[in-house]
């Protein structure tokens, strides 16, 4: 059970949050211009990394804000949390 440092509320129990999958996948601005393959890339393709992964999280039972998290999936260490729109603090 993680202890997540919500960028708006501080440390809270994982049970207050829900994970929204891989971060930094930007919705295409002009979807109609895309081929089926390009659209499918956006729509379906997600990484499943063993190691450092960038994820979207929502403080669902708290401030309802979305934010990003850098997590090592091999040991569940959270390396950073940062607000939506901010650059990831780790490459």
């Amino acid at each position: 059970m993680f202890l997540i440092n919500c960028p708006y509320c501080g440390e809270r129990d994982q049970s207050e949050f829900s994970c929204g999958g891989e971060a930094h996948i930007v919705r295409p601005k002009q979807p109609t211009e895309l081929s089926d393959d390009q659209w499918a890339e956006y729509l379906f393709m997600r990484k499943n990394i063993k190691g450092i992964q960038f994820e979207r999280w929502n403080h669902a039972h708290g401030c309802r804000k979305w934010f990003n998290m850098v997590r090592d999936t091999s040991n569940d260490k959270i390396h950073a949390v940062y607000k939506m729109g901010e650059k990831p603090p780790i490459e």
């Binding site: 929204g20 930007v26 919705r27 979207r56 929502n58 669902a60 804000k65 979305w66 939506m84």
Partner: peptide, 13 residues
């Protein structure tokens, strides 16, 4: 509600 919030906060801030 949470889907709409998601789009508002992340795609169309």
């Amino acid at each position: 509600l949470s889907k709409l919030e998601d789009y508002l906060q992340t795609e169309w801030p």
